[in-house]
Design a protein around this nucleic acid. Structure first.
Ligand SMILES: Nc1ccn([C@H]2C[C@H](O)[C@@H](COP(=O)(O)OP(=O)(O)OP(=O)(O)O)O2)c(=O)n1
Length: 903
DNA sequence: CTTGGGACCTAA
DNA sequence: TGAGTTAGGTCCCAAG
């Protein structure tokens, strides 16, 4: 029988360790496979020539010591080194003895690999991958030699072992989402030690006994005026008291047996609260699939990880924060923006009143809570939030829960560890770093003398040709850094270390010297492990991209786009990891070589286009080229004298440029044609807007793409984004300065007339900033607002939250002191500082845009030089004559005159 | 008043 | 059991 691995844990007794694999078979049934006998181990380099027998005698934990040959982590080596492989009985014993062994014997390796991961890597089993089950006892109840009286909550319990098997499909998974309500205290936030959980709402997919949702309540009360359509799909169970409700919840989980338990902010609120509350009540709340129903949480810095053994705790909030760039993330906003659905409204005071009242119907409260659970579930079902993570899990081999909860480094380490194992190479433990060393490597003050820059230099950014430009072909290297690493065989395993005599044994022609001066052996000597991993991941990304293009619906496209993007970031993170000071293997030489090649490549690309290709003969024309901008791996090539050519022509020309460049590049580096911009405006490095045409199923689709400018920045108000965005559209598509100018003046007029009855304008005036710490060196508006809110209501805002605020009128005060909680401002009808909004929000970005364009216009039309678009006379704005006339008829001819220029 | 740096957010 | 990387623009505060 085969099954898909959802989660893994282990238990150990005196005699043995049992790894437990929680799986789902093709019929969708849950299985717990108990695998006894796997033993933890690590490696040590016997620099001190300690006698292994002595060593074994010294540590009772050591079960076995073997002499093995392994390659060391960093540097090209012709031969492996002799290491000791030290096996112990229990996983906990590795950390117990590793430091002493290191002290006594020498450097140690793989001493901090979690046991479950050790098992997965050694057996080549992957998270969300499939295994063949080989049972020795089919219905394992624990009454056997292993002495574990454990019967899990899975449908089947099997003792045996597992073998990986290739199988592409996913089992059918069960989702349960939950949302809890606590009794709000009269002031402040509920606390598990005193405030009861009053409602637990659950939503199911697929339905549970025909029910899509169940709301459990901790008291019996009237449900009068409950919506009629509620039954029978959506039910309510009155459990009478809190403990009964909690028990019922646990029983439902056991009976429904979900694979994924979802929530919204559930890692930070619902689960910790439930766990602390049950502890306070001194009752159990079994939820996990293991015999004990384990569920617990642990705080890591500012984030909380929830473990529900055998299942996956999936909190939609952090996933949404990662995937969607929004100004605010409370459920009411994300539900609206991502699901086009509405969260129901209820204030804590109202909740408290309803719950405490003797005979009032609690229907509103019940439906409020039910909706939250349904929304949490909807994120997973409609947005398919987990698909990407399931794919990443299968690719990296990490368990789904760990993928969801952790960053790039975990995946990278897992992939490296697997690849290293195959080549008999060992992995160092994570380095112990001083607190501040992580961020700043440079003392600057006294370390000027020795070994040169301890720094990692990044990508090259070309200064843009400013102003309004036309006919730009956008070229972009496909996965630049990963392809550089492959092309030049950059790897821990191919790096020739300084002063390593091994260099003498290598033919000069097989030594690659990178722009930063580091040396690597060529693939003919040894093909690097990193390049192999990267090639594999690149092909996975290509697959995802291909599937994305083939996808029939926008939703499918979005999901696959998210996957290919995630793979791209994972690919790039191998470069990042090599220059990451907390990496198991840190090699600035690799990282600097990658960026060095990258910079060289960008400059060379520009140079070849400008000085070698120069022009593209096309049809009856010869089209001169110039480079308008470039950033790290992109080149914006301007086609001069492009009159009358079409977008198709541009694509052909673009592709002929990439072909010429690609001829000269080592594989698999590849410059790709990305898109064509009819017009573009470059404000500064990393700030531009382009009017691009891209192919779609229905022909050419045009859109305005904005990078870095205020329209895409979340620390500006929506009024700014909207106004600028419309100006950009008008300027780029129509070249109509008059119209853009009128838009701005009318926007400012409307702003000056603002009053609180204008709800949509009010929303457009919200600023948001992320609260990222509590000890700022200078006054910060969002912190001031967060503190005000806490003082007034006891509502605690957390680090990581985005804080919305408005700027209110207050003469002479600092900006930060004028920031106010929007709700409070509305409630007290505080006067908004319209001057601020006009002078600091609307005008500066607009002025930058118009000034930027005008410089260009000046070049074009010397006679109309020295005109500013806006001049400031106190509050009055005087707008100069239009510089470009509206393009009314036949845009092609008109615009040719308006925009074309020589260079 | 000018200037440097902190903070934020984005591009790559 | 944690956390890929650097480059860059713009705002505001506070030190000078
Ligand atoms: N999160 C990121 C994004 C980019 N880069 C580096 C590595 C990339 O290779 C290079 C160029 O970035 P792109 O955004 O253009 O991405 P790629 O070239 O990797 O992929 P694509 O094929 O989408 O262009 O910048 C990075 O280190 N980390």
């Amino acid at each position: 029988m085969r099954a898909q691995v959802i989660d893994v844990d282990y238990i150990s007794s005196k005699e043995t360790n049992v790894v437990r694999l929680y799986c789902k078979n093709e019929a969708g049934e849950s299985i717990c496979l108990s695998v006894p006998g796997f033993e933890p181990y690590f490696y040590a380099r016997n620099s001190n020539n300690v006698n292994p027998t002595t060593l074994k005698r010294k540590f009772y934990q050591i079960k076995k010591i073997e002499d093995v040959e392994r390659y060391l982590p960093l540097g090209y080596q012709r031969e492996p080194s002799k290491l000791l492989k030290i096996t112990v009985q229990h996983p906990k014993q590795v950390p117990e003895i590793r430091d002493e062994v290191k002290e006594l014997v020498g450097e140690v390796f793989e001493t901090d690999i979690l046991f479950k991961n050790r098992y997965l890597v050694d057996k080549n089993i992957k998270g969300m991958g499939w295994i063949n089950l080989h049972p020795s006892i089919a219905d394992y109840t624990g009454q056997d030699a292993t002495d574990h009286k454990s019967k899990s909550n899975c449908k089947f319990n099997i003792l045996g072992h597992a073998e990986p098997v290739n199988y592409l499909a996913n089992a059918s998974f069960k989702f349960l989402s939950l949302d809890i309500e606590c009794l709000p205290p009269e002031d402040g936030m509920p606390e598990p030690s005193k405030d009861p959980v009053i409602i637990i709402s659950l939503a199911f997919d697929p339905p549970f006994n025909g029910k899509k949702s169940i709301v459990l309540t901790a008291k019996s009360a009237s449900l009068q005026s409950q919506p009629e359509q509620t039954e029978p799909l959506n039910t309510t169970e009155m459990l009478g008291n809190e403990v009964k409700m909690l028990n019922r919840f646990s029983n439902i989980v056991k009976e429904y047996d979900p694979d994924f338990i979802a929530g919204y902010n559930s890692n930070s609120f619902d689960f910790p609260y439930l766990i602390d509350r049950t502890a306070a009540l001194e009752i159990n709340l079994p939820l996990g699939r293991d015999d004990r129903g384990s569920v617990y949480y642990k705080n890591f810095g500012i984030i909380t990880k929830v473990t529900i053994t055998g299942r996956v705790a999936a909190d939609a909030l952090p996933l949404i924060k990662r995937e969607f760039s929004l100004k605010q993330y409370p459920l009411e906003f994300t539900a609206k923006q991502l699901l086009n659905d509405e969260k129901l409204d209820m204030k804590p005071e109202e909740m408290r009143r309803i719950w405490l009242s003797a005979n009032e119907s609690i229907a509103k409260l019940v439906e409020y809570s039910r909706k939250d659970a349904q929304l949490a579930l909807a994120f997973f079902l409609k947005l398919k939030l987990l698909d990407k993570y399931i794919a990443l899990s299968r690719t990296s081999g990490m368990l789904l829960q760990d993928i969801i909860d952790s960053g790039q480094s975990q995946m990278i380490e897992m992939l490296l560890l697997r690849a290293f194992l195959l080549e008999k190479r060992v992995m160092p433990p994570k380095p112990e770093l001083e607190e501040d060393a992580a961020t700043d490597a440079n003392d600057e003050t006294d370390s000027k003398d020795d070994d040169g820059e301890e720094e990692l230099k990044g990508g090259e950014v070309l200064p843009p040709k400013k102003g309004l430009l036309e006919n730009i072909v956008i070229l972009d290297y496909k996965s630049l850094y990963p392809t550089i690493m492959i092309a030049h065989n950059l790897c821990y395993t191919t790096q020739i270390m300084d002063n390593d005599p091994v260099i003498a044994s290598i033919d000069q022609k097989d030594i690659i010297i990178t722009p930063s001066g580091a040396r690597f052996v060529s693939p003919s000597v040894k093909k690097g492990i990193l390049p192999q991993i990267l090639e594999n991941l690149l092909s996975k990304r290509d697959e995802a991209k291909k599937a994305m293009k083939a996808a029939s619906t926008d939703d499918e496209k979005r999901i696959l786009d998210a996957l290919q993007y995630a793979l791209k970031i994972l690919l790039n993170s191998f470069y990042g990891y090599s220059g990451y000071r907390r990496a198991r293997i840190f090699s600035l030489e690799i990282a600097n070589s990658v960026t060095g090649y990258g910079r060289e490549n960008l400059l060379r690309t520009k140079d070849v286009i400008l000085n070698e290709i120069k022009t593209i003969p096309y049809k009856d024309f010869v089209i001169p080229l110039s480079v308008a901008y470039g950033d790290t791996d992109s080149t914006f090539v301007m086609l001069l004298d492009f009159a009358n050519l079409t977008i198709e022509d541009a694509e052909i020309i673009g592709k002929s440029i990439t072909a010429k460049i690609n001829e000269r590049l080592p594989k698999p580096m590849e410059l790709q044609y990305e898109s064509f911009a009819k017009r573009a405006v470059f404000m500064a490095k990393k700030r531009y807007a382009i009017w691009v045409f891209e192919k779609s199923d229905e022909g050419w689709k045009d859109k305005i793409k904005v990078k870095g400018m205020e329209t895409v920045r979340r620390d500006w108000c929506d009024l700014t984004s909207k106004t600028l965005s419309r100006c950009l559209e008008i300027v780029l598509k129509e070249g109509n300065m008059e119209k853009a100018k009128n838009l701005v003046t009318s926007t400012i007029d409307a702003l000056r007339k603002f009053d609180y009855s204008d709800k949509s304008m009010l929303k457009d005036l919200f600023l948001t900033k992320k609260l990222s710490k509590r000890n700022y060196k200078s006054k910060q508006p969002h912190l001031i607002v967060a503190e005000k809110i806490f003082r007034r209501s006891g509502t605690r805002l957390h680090i990581g939250d985005r804080i919305p605020f408005v700027i209110i009128s207050a003469k002479g005060k600092l900006f930060a002191d004028k920031a106010e909680d929007p709700d409070y401002a509305v409630e007290h009808k505080l006067k908004l500082d319209t001057d601020y909004y006009v002078d600091k929000q609307i005008l500066p970005p607009i002025k930058r845009l118009f000034d930027g364009i005008e410089i260009e216009i000046k070049d074009l039309k010397a006679d109309k030089a020295n005109r500013t678009l806006f001049e400031f006379h106190g509050d009055e704005i005087v707008v100069s004559e239009p510089i470009l006339r509206p393009a009314k008829s036949s845009p092609n001819n008109e615009q040719k005159n308006l925009f074309s220029f020589g260079n």
